[in-house]
Every structure is written in structure tokens, then in C-alpha cells.
Design a protein around this nucleic acid. Sequence first.
DNA 1: GTCTATAAGATGATAGAC
DNA 2: GTCTATCATCTTATAGAC
Lengths: 187, 187
Amino acid sequence: MKERIIDVAQALVQSRGFNAFSYRDLADRILIRTASIHYYFPKKDDLARALIERYRSDFEGAIQDIDCTARSPQDRLSAYLKMFLELSKGGSRLCLFAVFSAELPSLSETVQEEIKIFYEKNIQWIGDVIDDGRRAGLFSFPGGSRDVASAIFSFLEGEMLVQRVFPSKEPFPEVPDAIRILLSWGP
Amino acid sequence: MKERIIDVAQALVQSRGFNAFSYRDLADRILIRTASIHYYFPKKDDLARALIERYRSDFEGAIQDIDCTARSPQDRLSAYLKMFLELSKGGSRLCLFAVFSAELPSLSETVQEEIKIFYEKNIQWIGDVIDDGRRAGLFSFPGGSRDVASAIFSFLEGEMLVQRVFPSKEPFPEVPDAIRILLSWGP
DNA sequence: GTCTATAAGATGATAGAC
DNA sequence: GTCTATCATCTTATAGAC
């Protein structure tokens, strides 16, 4: 049940935002009473934290999978992008953290801190991968790998916003051209 | 008065989101009663439309200013970026449209349409500028200018989300490195 | 134009029966 | 665990006095 509530809540956050849905919205969709949801998540902030925790652990699990299979930097980055887009259901759902960032000052301190950790982990990981790639002569870019990693991550988060507004746009290619250019990643 | 309401409302939207503030929040800040706000903006959707209209006209005015002074593609793009960041008050405020995109499905059809127009205008303009730049041999990038313009815009919107989470990060340079790389824009 | 007063409904939350 | 019942509060919105 707990998982099911999180499922539905996540879908609502990713489409409307955290402040634009109520326990009633959840209850109606799950066919349960709001009091039952309060049993699992007494305060709405508890729900926010649970949402983040699962999303983040999904992400970290996926990243570990990628690291374990230990392929080339290119394959790792490709796999990351694919996973990123999958979790967001191709734009109809935003990245959970893009939504939370947009509403950041309305969220609790704890949640804000969790969001920061998520961003940090992602940028760190991308930075490591492209650094590996550069050392192997596969990628080429000026400056620090962290800056480029941050730019890639910003681009991905922003691209979801744009894609939401233009659903007619062709779906994300597996590796967006912008990233290929940023990394001088030849075809 | 109307302008003042829009000022305060815009600040609230850019920090918390459209669904996370109420007429009461506005009233408390402006030292007025909620009924008075309803006099100017009967429905909250009227306020949303007014917000968008002003933001968009500010943007278009600024873009026209840039076009009239008719400088080089590089200067035009620099000026655009500077304006973009100014309107967003350096990350403490998100781009109004980044917030609206994040909450898109919770907004009215009319508002959604306006958001689309804003995005379209911006991407179109950036595309024209970098196309000019490419023809003049100042920029170099593979593929269509619209795709690169879209990537630049996505990056900017996303960068604001990231900057909000890491306020300690150094402020946006006038022309972010990512954009220099995307355009092969030498120093 | 701004106010008081107020309505109708939503919202987050709790107590207590089953 | 799930329910009914209930709460205080907030939210959007309107009517009508000044």
C-alpha cells in the first residue's frame, strides 16, 4: 500500500507539482480514504521525503548497475541518459527534482537538503564519467569536468521543461546532439 | 495598484510556484484586502494571464531593443543572456516560465498556450542570431540552428534550477562556457 | 477602489470505532 | 489498517456598504 501511494503521488508531483495535489486527489485515485493515507504519511512532508527517498534510491541503484557492468564512458553516459529519460516517462512527467527545485522555497529544510544531495550525486557521477572519457581520449572539452557535467545536467533538466511545452517535438534521441557537441563526441 | 499586485505575485510565483501562494499572501504583503485584489483580477487565472503578459512583453521589448541596436551576433547573444539572467534576479527567482512549465498541467488552456508562444519566440530568436553568426563565420555547430537554439534555451532554464539548489555556486558568467562550446565560440 | 462580511468548498490533520 | 466523523484553517470568490 505504501508503495502504491508513493506511485500515485509521484505521478501527481511530476505532472502538477507538489503543492497542486491534495490527499484527496490521492485518495480518489487509490480508492481509499484520506485518513488511511495519513496513517502511512502523517504529514505531507513525510510523503515528500518518502517520494524523494525512493526516487533517489532508484536512481542510485540504476547508477550502480551501470558502474558494475563497467563499460566504456560512452556506454555509461548513454545508459545514464536512457535511464534519466525513462524515469521521466519521456517528458509527460518531469524529473521529480526539477519540479521540487521549481517549488524549492515552499518545501521543508529537510527536503531541500535531500534535493541538494541528489543534484550533487548526479553531477559528481557525470563528472567522473566524462573525466574518464577525456583521459581515454574519447571526449574533448575545455575546462573542468565538473563544470561540463553541471552543464549537461542543467541541459537535461531544462530539456524536460521544453519538451513538456512542445510534446510534438521528436522524442529525445538516445544521446542529445547538445551533449555530443559539448563533449566533442564524434559519431 | 495593478502593477504592484503583479510585482508581488511574480516574486511569489518565481520563488514558490503558482499553486503555492494565495490571494491572502498577496494581500498581507501589499497591505490590502483580498477582495481588492479580486477587483483587479477576479479569478486567479486572470492574474496568471496578466503575469505572463507583462513578463512576455518585457522580454519582447528587451529583445527588440537588442535587435534595434543591431550589433554583432555575439553581442546580441550576450545581451540576451544578460537580460535573461537579470529578469530572474540571479537564480533567487526562477524564470517565470520555468515555474509555469513545471506546473503546466495544473494551469488553464489559455495560460498553457501563452507559455508555448513564449518558448517559441525565444527559441526562434536565438536560432536566428546563431544562424547569422554561423553565416558570418563567427559560430560553428553541426545541424540545424533551431536544434542548437533549443538546446541553449533548455540549458538556460535548467541552469536556473541547478543554481537555485547551489546558491553558493559562482554567479553565471556573462556567457556560460557551455554555450561557448556549443557554438565553438572562441575567446 | 477599498472595505467588511460571508459563503462554499478544499485542505491537512486527528480521534476513535471496527 | 481502514473506516467515519470531525476539526480548524485556508482558499477562492462574491455581495454590498462606504
